[in-house]
Design a protein around this nucleic acid. Sequence first.
DNA 1: GTTCGATCGTGCGGAATTCGCAGGTATCAG
DNA 2: CTGATACCTGCGAATTCCGCACGATCGAAC
Lengths: 179, 179
Amino acid sequence: MHSEPVASRSADQKGSREHREPSRESRNGSSPQLDAVSLAIIEQLQEDGRRPYAAIGKAVGLSEAAVRQRVQKLLDQGVMQIVAVTDPLTVGFRRQAMVGVNVEGDVESVADALSAMSECEYVVMTAGSFDLMVEIVCEDDDHLLDVINKRIRAVPGVRSTESFVYLKLKKQTYMWGTR
Amino acid sequence: MHSEPVASRSADQKGSREHREPSRESRNGSSPQLDAVSLAIIEQLQEDGRRPYAAIGKAVGLSEAAVRQRVQKLLDQGVMQIVAVTDPLTVGFRRQAMVGVNVEGDVESVADALSAMSECEYVVMTAGSFDLMVEIVCEDDDHLLDVINKRIRAVPGVRSTESFVYLKLKKQTYMWGTR
DNA sequence: GTTCGATCGTGCGGAATTCGCAGGTATCAG
DNA sequence: CTGATACCTGCGAATTCCGCACGATCGAAC
């Protein structure tokens, strides 16, 4: 996975770019609109967030400076962020749970209230038998109990909750954007 | 948040380290056992995964080389990884869902089977009315339908599934390790 | 007390990377 | 055609990364 430049940059040297086609390989409808080269850059950085720009450039067929500018733009646009992610267990959080929430009234305001809690790591509005799914990261059982029973259920509009305590995390990827 | 070194390294210069206490601020029980300085380094890299070692060193009160060695060890131990994370929507994945799975027989083998699917971004074994919770990332509705009905339900041991299609992602953090 | 061995930090050059900027080309609107 | 914009390239200069030797501390063994 470390070869084969994505953009066909073999014979065409110097500033003679091959007429960027408007939108072919990109089937997304959001704002920024990524092309194949940016996708490839992201892919590189998903393998190693600290990979040098020159190495990325060689892989995707761009100069070091061009990669640097693209990465900066992707960062500025909020398309991606380069961060350290940790295994919660080794950092001292021994209890995690997914909590399904049923709401009466305005779902979004409840979601905002839950999002404000530092223990809620992930908040998403869903269709189905729950209105909200919330992932919680806690230090121990007491902490978890406190968050679920005292804090979440205390939010106005929360009708009921159902908890799924994590027993074992089997997979966790950050490899969106390519497959 | 860019000042105040964590380790008290003001008057004590040169190799006179202040007798590392065995385990005080770390209340975790796992293998690696992180101290406050490593936590601070992680915190720095959670803000910006490409922050230079020298800058991190200044923030946590360590030399550039020491930070580099610690980061390398944290990476090798699997305590953290530095990666690019993206907003799935802007990368072309328009449908996401959480799927609760009930299993008959060996839960772990089913979890392994689901983990092998590239569309399953997150697989966790849980206690509660589901045995497994799986997060799925798809390009569109057809893709999602295919994954849930054809692929997941086809795994031997899967008794039933319940889907929660994402309507809106409200919060997503990678700030474990500090609070 | 002393002697290993392991762990961890520091300092220091040389190599590699990042950064800013000055062109150059292509596209698009007027 | 002219100007504005977007994007890439090339190139020094500043910065960062990297490997390595050396010093200190700690625990265990003697």
